[in-house]
Design a protein around this nucleic acid. Structure first.
Lengths: 333, 333
DNA sequence: TTTAGCACTCTCCGGGCGAGAGTGCTAACG
DNA sequence: CGTTAGCACTCTCGCCCGGAGAGTGCTAAA
């Protein structure tokens, strides 16, 4: 009964009346009986009426009950699953692009908004450093971290440094730095390298300055995809409702906070359960992806409160497991 | 006169009446005189009335005349200019991030939407290739192009390749490939390397496969920033008008086409002058940025037709010159 | 040529009204 | 005692109407 109401509301976005239920879902009873049951459900707080003479709309509590019944077995239809697998196979390039791909897939498949947190490396360890000469007097400093992410910065070279000389400096840098946590750069590493020629001091200063800043900047990046879909939802036709929500989504810190809250596995936050008033008409489905069995980051789908939970949860669940798998394989864990 | 009308309309977004002009801009004449003049302007097609008893609104032709008078001397107030210079100085990292910064700056400063085309390298030449071991059986292939952009991909290693061995392979690859245009990889380069051990064939296949795909993927990337500002404009309160526009903006190919059309210097396209019907309520200000004096890419600001052309043109002009300068310096040209 | 005055037109806003949808209650039915 | 048909009631939504307000164009006077 409650299920019928919720599913009809999810499909139509209109308050559902007793007649509708009686007609569409032939439960073998008349609309009058359904009216009685609905009255009960309302008393229990599972549904509510926008006004006296409209149909009923599920309440947060109603959605909650509904969601809790289906949280255990989210399974995706095989055609979609196959398609997703193919996408992942085609685009194996690096962590960054995989995370982006995941966001895009989710948004496209569900028509909701996806929010993905890039994998956090516990401590960002320097794997490899290189200096590539570019043109007159500049070089590109390339950093590869143990987690497989890539950063770069342009640095100025002292006058008259040749390509071979630069290669030597790069090798020296690489030797000194690889294996070292970027956070602890300032202290330990500097001294070891200072031994090198004085002439390179400015170059070193630039390089280390960059390397020190990397951990803060790169950490916990948030990828949003499909925000435009919000505008397509009938409950968000009112711009005054949408804009605060969009503004909220742009604040990375809040998004990070939103995703770092609950435990593991699929979790759903519904309407008024959110901290932020702007999200009271939304629901958020969250999952954790893992690398080598250890939690690495989080993924979420944001949709209207009457989102298609079955589809959203199934898709999110599947995509999460795919991402975990591909990432683990890639990073050799 | 026309100027007064346009500037008032830009400021208020409401049709402007003769009274308003007489009051705000004391031109020493009464509203009746202004009515006569307005009637003339309307006959000439510079302004139009939405309906009989509303004020006047500038037409495309009116804006065109207005814009053409001020296209020559866009100058930014010194405080802003200084602020922009400071931003550029603080974030000198690499091409990619500079382009993004430019987009962000423009969007924030003007509250319009910025569209930036990443610099096109005529032919993407390989500057440096490296293989960095990551974990069990994988390595990261890093590519630096002559233009200073950075690409990477994960590749699988044959069983039992040690770090030193990998370094040798990387060096071989680097020697063979650096200086070679990526587009012509397939033919020439492959043969030279095939001489190496058969054992590495799969690795080579993966690497070259990636390197070949790079030119297409990386080319002409479009960066959008500040699309949300569109929703803030009073003329775009109607979602039915906004959504087609947003949909259009998401199509990279169309954006590229939009920016590749006109000549050099600042150029403005107003309302109905656009090819695409979705943009008939918008104006686009476009500029070309240069690296070492040669056109490298394009930047644009998209706003409502009644956008603040003075500010937009001045800001765009200044930011463009800054970007050109910084990029030229960085790439040593 | 400019200006004051005035009639005219058109939009916008609020109230009133009827149609439609859905409910809750009551009474009948198996 | 649960179910159902019937009916009065309520509330929203869309529509029309009329008055207020804003702005125009025209005319006649300065």
């Amino acid at each position: 009964m409650l299920q019928a109401i919720i599913e009809d509301y999810i499909a139509t976005a209109e308050p559902v009346g007793s007649r509708t239920i009686a007609r569409k879902y032939n439960l073998g009873v008349s609309s009058a009986t359904i009216r009685n049951e609905m009255s009960d459900l309302e008393e229990l707080g599972y549904i509510e009426q926008p006004h006296t003479s409209a149909g009923r709309v599920p309440s947060d509590k109603g959605y909650r009950l509904y969601v809790d019944t289906l949280i255990d077995h989210p399974s995706l239809d095989e055609a979609r699953a196959a398609w997703i697998r193919r996408e992942y196979r085609a685009r194996v390039r690096h962590t960054h692009s995989l995370v982006q791909l995941t966001g895009r897939l989710l948004a496209e498949l569900t028509s909701y908004t996806s929010i993905v947190l890039a994998p956090q490396e516990q401590a960002r360890v320097c794997r490899h450093v290189d200096l590539v000469p570019l043109g007159s007097g500049t070089a590109m400093l390339v950093l590869v971290t143990a987690g497989g992410s890539l950063e770069s910065s342009l640095v100025e070279l002292p006058a008259g440094v040749g390509d071979e000389e630069l290669r030597d400096i790069a090798q020296l840098l690489d030797q000194e730095l690889s294996g070292i946590a970027l956070g602890q750069l300032a202290r330990g590493a500097l001294r070891g390298i200072e031994l090198g020629l004085n002439r390179y001091q400015e170059l070193l200063r630039q390089s280390l300055g960059f390397l020190e800043r990397v951990p803060e900047e790169g950490a916990d990046k948030v990828f949003l995809c499909g925000t435009k879909h919000i505008l397509g939802q009938p409950e968000f036709q009112d711009l005054h409702k949408v804009r605060p929500l969009l503004a909220l989504l742009e604040q990375e810190a809040i998004m990070q906070d939103l995703l770092t809250s609950p435990g593991t596995g699929l979790s759903v936050t519904i309407g008024g359960e959110h901290k932020h008033a702007e999200m009271q008409d939304c629901s958020l489905v969250t999952a954790t992806y893992r690398v080598g069995g250890r939690p690495a980051g989080r993924i979420a789908l944001l949709g209207p409160r009457r989102m298609n939970y079955v589809e959203a949860m199934a898709t999110l669940n599947f995509v999460t497991s795919q991402l975990s798998e591909v990432l683990s394989k890639l990073l050799g864990k």
